[in-house]
Nucleic acid binder design. Structure first.
Lengths: 115, 115
DNA sequence: ACCACGTATTGACAAATGTCAATGTCTTGG
DNA sequence: CCAAGACATTGACATTTGTCAATACGTGGT
């Protein structure tokens, strides 16, 4: 049986779009989680600060002062961003270096783009 | 005095980008509000349902059943989307017709796009 | 004028969220 | 091995958020 129908979830999950395709419940939940991770002024500034740094990475100590929040709070926000796939974390020695995960932002931008 | 320097706020607010430019506090707050409006599974599905309808508009009565929530709750979500500029509302008779405001989604997608 | 119906608003409440203080974990230097 | 430093985790608390029930508002038909 070579002609096998694909599971419905596969075709539904293919390049989901907010306005160009009917959005399934699963995709809605997934993208809502991703959007929630970015839907905070502090986290937006953290992402921007990471992107603005030379070599496109930053440690927590670089970020605490610019956003004016305590270290635990900044770590908490960074964890949310890493869990959502917006940032990558790499531990080198004592420091944790955070960098932008461009593919996730691309996915998000493509999802929202109405064109 | 023809050569007039533009207010700093103007140049900072020009085509803000999450990863390509340092993000000011005001832009961070503004985009966080916009993202919050979309960062909910129900509201994502509402936007998708509106976009999927013929003539690209829908009234509340079209939306309550698909999302499985009460009419006041759906109205509440739609208000949030309208306030954020994601949807437009047009009252015709007894019905309120909601439609996609593409320019806002474009702005969001451009803001998030890392390219 | 009244009634029916579609929508919006209000009030209430449980759940989630953002922040901090305190503490825990792990790596490096001496 | 110990101390210091960088980061993560936990617990607590006020604020915000998503939902519903009840009610108010506005329009069209009879």
């Amino acid at each position: 049986m070579i002609e096998q129908t694909l599971p419905a979830a596969v075709s539904r999950s293919c390049c989901p779009s907010l306005t160009m395709r009917p959005l399934g419940q699963d995709d809605a939940v997934e993208f809502a989680r991703l959007l929630k991770a970015v839907a905070d002024p502090t986290r937006l500034r953290l992402v921007s600060l990471v992107a603005a740094n030379v070599s496109n990475e930053a440690c927590v100590c670089d970020l605490t002062e610019p956003v004016g929040l305590g270290q635990p709070t900044v770590s908490h926000h960074l964890k949310i961003l890493v869990d959502a796939g917006v940032l990558d974390r790499e531990k080198r020695g004592v420091w944790s270096y955070y960098s932008i995960k461009a593919s996730t932002l691309e996915k998000l931008a493509a999802f929202l783009s109405p064109a």
